[in-house]
Simulated assay, not measured.
Amino acid sequence: MASSSAGVVAGLTAAALATIGYLAHQASVAAPRDAGRAHASSSPAPGAPKAPRDRLHPDALPAGTGSGERVVYSVDDDRVWLVGADDRVRRTFRITPSTVDPAPGTYAVTSRSNRVTGSDGIPVEHVVRFTSVDGVVIGFSAAVDGSMAKPDPDERTGGIRETRADGDAMWEFATIGQQVVVVR
């Protein structure tokens, strides 16, 4: 009987491994070559629709940004929304954009740093990174001196600048793995 049970377990293990291999193959075939990579541009990817806006309430969360807890970043409106699990906006604020924009899509927070020097040489705090575009790391941060000057358009930077108060809120909200939805 033990030999029969071992054979069944071995057969099930082989079937499970074959299924996993098949699914992995399907995922690699179905995934576009540039999956997970954003594209540097000052405009969104071709054909990416702009999320619908509430004309009466321009600070309102754009429609079609998903559900559940998430950060929503509009590259066209230079605005961020911190959205709770109940889909209610916890905070919204204006930002100073970087010179390199992420493509519209859904990302996740990949790393955070309490204090570093930004790619523009300015000391920043509460850095929340979520993607990179052609080697330029993209993330939210607040300048330690409170400045929010527009970056030099001739430099490729990925720091999306917030006020220190907004940076504190982002730091508390956007931990590793937090969803970040980028819209036009």
Rank of each mutant, 00 (worst) to 15 (best):
A10D: 15
I160R: 04
S5K: 10
R156Q: 13
D145S: 01
F140A: 03
F140Y: 06
R164K: 12
A149V: 07
V9C: 00
D54H: 12
D154K: 10
A63H: 02
T157F: 08
G158T: 05
Q179K: 13
A2P: 01
A27P: 00
D166T: 00
A60D: 14
D34H: 03
P46W: 12
D54F: 13
R164P: 03
A51H: 09
A10V: 08
V182N: 03
V8D: 04
A174K: 02
D54G: 09
G47Q: 05
V109L: 06
H25F: 15
V136D: 02
T19M: 11
I20P: 08
F173P: 05
P32I: 04
Y22E: 05
P153Q: 12
V133L: 00
Q179C: 02
Y22C: 13
V136L: 00
S113T: 01
G36D: 04
G68I: 10
A165Q: 12
T106I: 07
R91D: 15
D154N: 11
R91Y: 14
P153A: 14
S119T: 13
D77R: 14
T131R: 00
A51G: 13
S147N: 03
F140E: 05
Q26M: 11
A103K: 01
G84D: 14
V127P: 00
K150M: 09
V182T: 04
V124E: 06
P102K: 01
A51D: 06
H57Y: 11
E172R: 15
E162M: 15
S147F: 06
W81M: 12
T110L: 10
P46E: 08
A16E: 04
E172Y: 12
V180Q: 01
K50G: 14
I122S: 10
N114H: 15
G47N: 05
P153V: 12
H25C: 14
L61K: 06
Q179G: 00
A35F: 13
D76L: 08
V116W: 14
P153W: 11
R115V: 07
D168Q: 15
I160C: 04
A40S: 11
L82G: 04
G177K: 04
D152T: 06
E69K: 15
R55I: 15
V71T: 12
M148E: 09
